[in-house]
């Protein structure tokens, strides 16, 4: 699939990463700002959606403001030959918002599977982490949950236009 992002795409990303204008014709407004045709802007955004450069377009809820304060990053050490299956299983759970394979850095960092777990509080997150541990069974060679204590910076992806 064509995943090449060109200079015009980058200008569109820069113009929309803080959100679309809440007006009846938001894409036409963005196009006017950039001196582009509205149809071109929509085609390019559709292409980025199809290629996966844009994950989704919609309302981005602030989970923290909604009371989901138990954002816990669970990290797991699973055997390399089982990580794909484990990742797909864990990633499909509805309380997991992100699930990634990342490198180990031995001896300081033994974990290779990351799953972001959401709940209303720590107890709920802990319960969900136990659920993941039960699913992984013997493939769970060790895990930890890292709770965030402070958000020091949170913005959408930033790309200079």
């Amino acid at each position: 699939m064509n995943t090449v992002i060109d200079a015009t795409d980058r200008r569109i990303i820069a113009a929309t990463q803080e959100g679309l204008p809440l007006t009846p014709r938001p894409y036409a407004m963005i196009a006017a700002q950039l001196g582009l045709d509205a149809g071109d802007v929509m085609d390019r955004m559709q292409r980025m959606l199809d290629s996966g450069a844009i994950r989704r377009i919609g309302a981005v809820p602030n989970h923290y403001a909604l009371g989901f304060k138990g954002n816990g990053m669970s990290v797991w050490d699973v055997p390399d030959d089982t990580i794909k299956e484990a990742g797909q299983t864990i990633g499909a759970l509805d309380f997991v918002s992100h699930c990634y394979h990342r490198p180990r850095h031995l001896p300081t960092w033994p974990y290779n599977l990351f799953a972001m777990v959401h709940g209303r509080d720590r107890a709920e997150v802990d319960e969900k982490v136990h659920h993941i541990a039960a699913i992984l069974g013997a493939n769970n060679r060790g895990h930890e949950v890292l709770f965030s204590t402070r958000i020091l910076k949170k913005t959408g992806l930033r790309i200079a236009g």
Partner: peptide
């Protein structure tokens, strides 16, 4: 919802590794 902070924004969510 945006003014109340319940919605961070309404728009595209980009996937970082596809954009650099």
């Amino acid at each position: 919802l945006t003014e109340r902070g319940v919605v961070s924004r309404v728009g595209p969510v980009f996937r970082p590794q596809r954009c650099g």
